[in-house]
Amino acid sequence: MINGISINYYLLLSAVLFIIGAVGVMARRNSIIIFMCIELMLNAVNLLLVAFSTLHNDASGQVFVFFIMAVAAAEVAVGLAILSMIYRNVKTIDTDILSNLKN
C-alpha cells in the first residue's frame, strides 16, 4: 500500500498505458505518432519504477527514471532529426510508404 493505494493498481495502470502505446505503434501510420506512442510506453514504465521505488523506500527506482528521461530526450532529439531528414528527402513520414526500400 502506498498512501492507501495498493501497488496492484499502479501495475494495472501502467500495463494499460503501455498497451495503449503498443496499440498506437501498431495502428498508426504516421511515424511521429508512433514515436509519441513509444514515449507513452516509456512513461508507463517510469510510473511503475517510481511506484516501486516508493514502495520499497529505495531511491534507485527514481534514479532509473531520471536516466530513462535522459535517454528519452537523446532518443527524441536524434529520432526527430532522422524523421525530418527523411521527410526532406522522401516528402513523407508514412511508415507504409517508407517500408519500400526500393526507392
Binding site: N3, L13, L47, T54, M69, A72, A73, V76
Partner: peptide, 26 residues
C-alpha cells in the same frame, strides 16, 4: 501520479523535460 508518490523532484523534472522540451520538439 509522481506527486502522489512523493516524488516531487521527478514530477517537476518530468514536466520540464517531457512537457517543456521533448513535446515542444515534437
Amino acid at each position: 501520479h509522481y506527486l502522489l508518490l512523493n516524488a516531487q523532484f521527478l514530477a517537476v523534472v518530468h514536466i520540464v523535460v517531457y512537457a517543456g522540451a521533448i513535446m515542444v520538439l515534437f
